[in-house]
Structures are given as C-alpha cells and as structure tokens.
Amino acid sequence: MDKLTDKYLRKRKIPSTACSGCGLGQAHKAMVVAIDELGFDFYDIIWGTSIGCAGRQTFATWKGDNFAGTHGRVYAIARGLRLAIPVEKKLVLTVGDGDAFGIGFNHLLHAARSNAQMTVLVCDNLGYQSTGGQYGWTTPAGVKTDSSPYGMFEPNWVQTEMDILNVLKAAGATFLARHVSMDGRPLVESCKKALQNNGFSLVHCVFPCITNFGKNALGSRNTVNMFNWIKNRAAPLGEEKEDTLWRTGIYHDAINTRPEFSQLMRDKVSEIQRRYQDEGSH
C-alpha cells in the first residue's frame, strides 16, 4: 500500500509492531482504502483507540490527529470529542473484541443509542491475545486458551441466536456489518458505507492472530493454516453452511435515518439560545 502509506500514514511507524503473519494489516488497509476512495484527506479523520493489539498497531500509524484512551473507554471519550470537534471531522476508532464487546460494552451501547458519529472497526482476534492468549467474548466454542484449558464452553457473542450485532441494532446503531479480514472488496465497501453514515457505524472484522490464537487453538503458528481456518468458517449472509461461524456482509443499513448525537445537541442548544434571546427581547 505504498501510495496510500505516503498519503495517510506515518512512514516511521510502518511496518507497525504487529507480529509477522498478523491479519490486522488487512483490516487496517481496508479502512484506509475506504477513506481514500471516499476522497477524505488525512486531516478529515481523527483516529482513536483504547488499548490492545488492534488499536496500538493502527492509530499510531495515522498521519492525522490520533489518540489512545484507556481500555474500553474510547466510545465515551469519542462522544465527548464528537460534541467539541468541528462537525465535518470524522471519527474512526479501531478497537479489539475485548475492548468493544467486553470491558467497553456498556459505553458502546450508549454510543449506539445516542447515534454519535463514529466508525468503529472492531478488529477481532478472537480473545485477549496481547496479554498472552485468554478467551474473550467471541472465542469460538471448543477453543483452548490459557484461561479456558477445557476449551471455550461458555456461550459467545457471535452465536446465531444471540448475535452481538442484533444487540447493537436493538440499541440503535445505524450501520452494522461483519467481515473477515480476507474479505477484500466487500470489507472496503462496508467501511465506505460506515464512513458515509452521519451516525454510529460498526464493522466487526475477524482477523487471524498467528502468535497466540494460532498456537493455542490450532497448535501451530502456521500462517497459511490460520488464515484458511478463518476463511473456511466464513460465508456471506444467505450462503451459510452448517459449520459457518461468521456470516459476512451488511447486517443493518439505516444510514442517515436518525439524528446524529452532536447534531441533536447542537440543535437543542440553538433552540434554547433562541428561546432565551426571544425572552430577552421582550
């Protein structure tokens, strides 16, 4: 991604500190390509994260304004930012599965409820990998990790009957999609849609972690096997097979159908100010 690197990323931070074979770069690239194809420049986007592999390797490479908050809190920080930054700036957050669907889930739900503009790219490496490999809220059934030595037996958030994207839809999110990092073009298209939504968008993107997930779940750090393991368990919505774990595509598209949080707040503020002015003029 040489052309895009020059245009959008800090050269000194490329390559990022991701392990060799990590699939995060695919998700990262898809978002940068989407930004480019929509004609945004680096100063149009403010890129944020909380903590963990997903954010650390991406936000710091961004040439424009960027920030890292504390674990799970970036959605609340983003809502504050949203109120105070110029309306035309777009917020992009790359976060991990533990951050979004675990420790930060309460804040994420409220970000969806309020429909604050932010494009959340949840880069899902299927557990807590930067602390050495513990299970998380999307770890597939049966997978052994350091904290699930008998295999993951608790329910997770991607099971069909209790899909986290349905929860977020019910909470008010206006754009939701799911992909795996090797999806390529469809992933880029989802990111573009997400960015065009003046509201809360979330793209859930599963990517392979070779170092810890590969070692724990597949018993090897073979990159090709790990990529195929994910790819073979993903299928576009409507084409699911019995063993499909990740149904990919757009789950919910209601972009620009609800007032955006900061816009709502600005409108209310002007309304109240007008009322005071009117009262004052009498």
Partner: peptide, 23 residues
C-alpha cells in the same frame, strides 16, 4: 495475568472455579 493463568492450569486439581470477567 500470570496469576490467573496459573490458577486456571491447576483449577481441576484443587477444585477451584475460575471465571474470566468482562471487566
């Protein structure tokens, strides 16, 4: 984290229930 991992790895021998929390 190593404390949790050590307890996890021996939980069966010592009748310990371990639950990873969401936060």
């Amino acid at each position: 984290t190593a404390i949790m991992e050590f307890v996890s790895s021996r939980a069966d021998q010592y009748n310990i229930v371990l639950e990873q929390a969401e936060d």
